[in-house]
Design a binder for these strands. Structure first.
Length: 280
DNA sequence: TGAATTGTTATCGT
DNA sequence: AACGATAACAATTC
């Protein structure tokens, strides 16, 4: 499932292909995923040049320059793509073999087509004049220079929520999903059920370091390929707890345990991941 | 057949 | 009132 490192890898891969191209046509076979509707999105998007391809949290962000003919809206516009569970990009030239689950197609001025494929149809494509309408509610980027341990402390202190659901909450920190949350908590030696307000300053510093280290490692390995959805990454070979239920902990050799936290499958080393609360 | 997956939203409780 | 926990939901694969 694409989380921050996977989305970052996709953005880096497609940046070369997309930036500078002009969108000449757009089709959708699943208009429910579009906002606003197909006709409006088409009218506003076609004829615009892709000025920038970037990432905010798990959103892929296309910055669209005003149309060259200056007939339409002269404002810069934004198109965001959220892959959710099963969304992916495919790059197609004329005559390439057909791929499955194509939900949207951008035709570009160099003859290529960008395909959005999404087996489960959870993905979202949104057009906005103001990017803030889409990403305004998100918490800070964990890899930004401004995301300091003090900043994390500010987000965690006085919060009585359990660490795992708190870290998964995109309005608190943006970009972590189930995999990297489990890996970061293991690296920090913290129990996912631990309440945030009981962390010491030292623990927060360590968690801050673990989150950034884990995400950077994911990006360096081009993300994790754990199923048919996202190919090409090797981070899955570096998992220390995720998907390793029953296998020995890489640090202490205790068997990795599986539990449900906030309806999410969660992997921990019962010996390495301590909690202030003795019941955990 | 049901479990798994993400993020949003609604609802209930403290 | 604000916060947090929980469930439902979108749709599909294995």
């Amino acid at each position: 499932m694409p989380e921050l490192p996977e989305v970052e890898t996709i953005v880096r891969t497609y940046r070369r292909r997309l930036v500078g191209r002009t969108i000449t046509a757009f089709q959708s076979s699943w208009p429910k995923q579009l906002s606003p509707g197909l006709a409006t999105i088409r009218r506003r998007m076609i004829g615009r040049r892709i000025e920038r391809l970037s990432r905010r949290a798990k959103y892929i962000v296309m910055t669209l320059a005003p149309p060259a003919d200056a007939i339409g809206e002269s404002r810069t516009a934004f198109l965001t793509i959220h892959l959710r569970m099963s969304g992916r990009f495919e790059w197609a030239a004329e005559g390439d073999p057909k791929v499955r689950h194509v939900r949207a197609v951008w035709r570009l001025d160099d003859g290529h087509r960008l395909l959005f494929c999404d087996a489960r149809k959870f993905g979202r494509i949104q057009f906005a004049w103001d990017l803030n309408e889409i990403t305004g509610g998100l918490g800070p980027e964990p890899l930004a220079r401004s995301f300091t341990a003090a900043r994390l402390a500010g987000l965690l202190s006085r919060r009585k929520r359990q660490l795992k659901p708190l870290l998964l909450d995109q309005s608190v920190i943006a970009g972590l999903g189930n995999i990297y949350t489990d890996e970061a908590l293991f690296d920090a030696g913290l129990h996912p059920l631990q309440t945030a307000d009981r962390l010491t300053g030292k623990q927060i510093e360590r968690l801050h370091d673990s989150i950034r280290k884990t995400l950077r490692k994911g990006i360096a390995r081009n993300g994790a390929s754990i199923d048919w959805v996202y190919p090409g990454g090797t981070m899955q070979e570096s998992f220390r707890v995720y998907g390793r239920t029953g296998e020995p902990c890489p640090v202490c050799a205790a068997p990795i345990e599986y539990l449900k936290v906030a309806q999410r499958g969660t992997h921990i080393c019962p010996r390495c991941q301590s909690a202030s609360d003795p019941r955990l």
